[in-house]
Simulated scan of single mutants.
Amino acid sequence: MRRTSLLALLAATALLGGCGDGVVRRVSDPAVSVQQLTVKADGQWAVDLRLQNYSSIPMRFDTVEVDVQVGDQDAGKLRATPGLSVGPESADVVTVTFAPSSAGRIGVADALAGRRTLPYTLKGTAAATPDEAKQRSFDIDTRSTLNPVPGLDGVLR
């Protein structure tokens, strides 16, 4: 009787073990940062936003709305609708044209002229849709720095 119970338990364990696909579906908060900022001839900025997916499943980035601060100056609100799908635990870059405030332009121009590091902050939200799920809103609060790129006028990375 004991042997039969043990065999039944082993069989049930084997059947249940085969039910899962082994993939853990973890959704983590994504990150948004500036990979490169290029000052265009008309004063606008081409901002390369890095969209980082820390989840174990693909995620489509639908919208990004962040307040941009460079140095201690408010540069304005950046809005983007990338519609870009980023694979699990991966990143991709989308370029967004941004019309900064006068104070933001001056802060970037000063950093470029002085060849100095420029701190920046992004605060807002990113709406993203995890694979086979509904759209969610994630808080973005990024603080980092950009540095002038040697040999490339008007470019910070």
Rank of each mutant, 00 (worst) to 15 (best):
D67M: 03
Q69W: 07
D67E: 15
Y54P: 02
G76Y: 01
L78M: 06
A75T: 04
L84S: 04
D74Y: 13
F61Y: 14
S56V: 09
M59K: 09
T81K: 12
T81W: 02
I57D: 03
R60L: 06
N53V: 00
V70K: 05
E65D: 12
P58L: 11
M59R: 07
Q73M: 09
A80G: 03
L51H: 06
E65V: 08
G76W: 01
D62Y: 01
G76C: 03
D67F: 03
T63M: 04
V66S: 05
Q52H: 13
Q73A: 14
A75N: 09
D74T: 10
V70G: 07
N53L: 05
S85W: 11
S85N: 06
Q73L: 06
L51T: 02
Q73V: 07
G76N: 03
E65M: 00
I57M: 06
T63S: 11
A80Y: 01
V68D: 13
L51E: 04
R79Q: 15
Q73S: 13
Q69C: 05
Q69K: 13
Y54D: 09
L78T: 08
V70T: 14
L51Y: 08
Y54V: 02
V64Q: 02
T63A: 08
Q73W: 03
K77V: 15
V66D: 07
G76P: 15
G71F: 02
Q52W: 12
R79T: 15
P58Y: 15
V66T: 10
M59N: 11
Q73N: 08
S56A: 13
Y54F: 14
D72N: 11
N53E: 05
L84K: 14
T81I: 11
L84A: 07
Q52A: 13
M59A: 06
Y54E: 09
G76Q: 05
I57R: 04
Q69Y: 09
D72F: 08
E65H: 04
L84Q: 10
V86Y: 12
P82H: 06
Q69I: 14
L78S: 08
M59F: 11
R79N: 12
L84G: 01
N53I: 00
Q69T: 15
L84E: 08
V68T: 09
R50C: 00
S55K: 06
M59T: 11
D62W: 01
F61P: 06
S55Q: 09
A80K: 02
S55M: 05
G76L: 00
R60I: 01
A75G: 09
S56N: 11
T63Y: 01
A75D: 11
V66L: 02
P58Q: 12
Q52I: 12
E65C: 00
A75C: 07
V68R: 02
N53H: 08
V86D: 04
V66P: 12
N53G: 01
V64Y: 03
D74G: 13
A80S: 11
V86K: 07
V70L: 14
M59Y: 14
S55D: 13
D67G: 12
V70Q: 11
L51W: 06
D62S: 11
N53F: 07
T81M: 10
I57P: 00
T81R: 10
R50I: 00
D62C: 05
F61R: 04
E65F: 01
K77M: 04
L84M: 15
D62V: 14
D74V: 03
A75F: 05
M59L: 12
R60M: 03
A75K: 04
P82N: 04
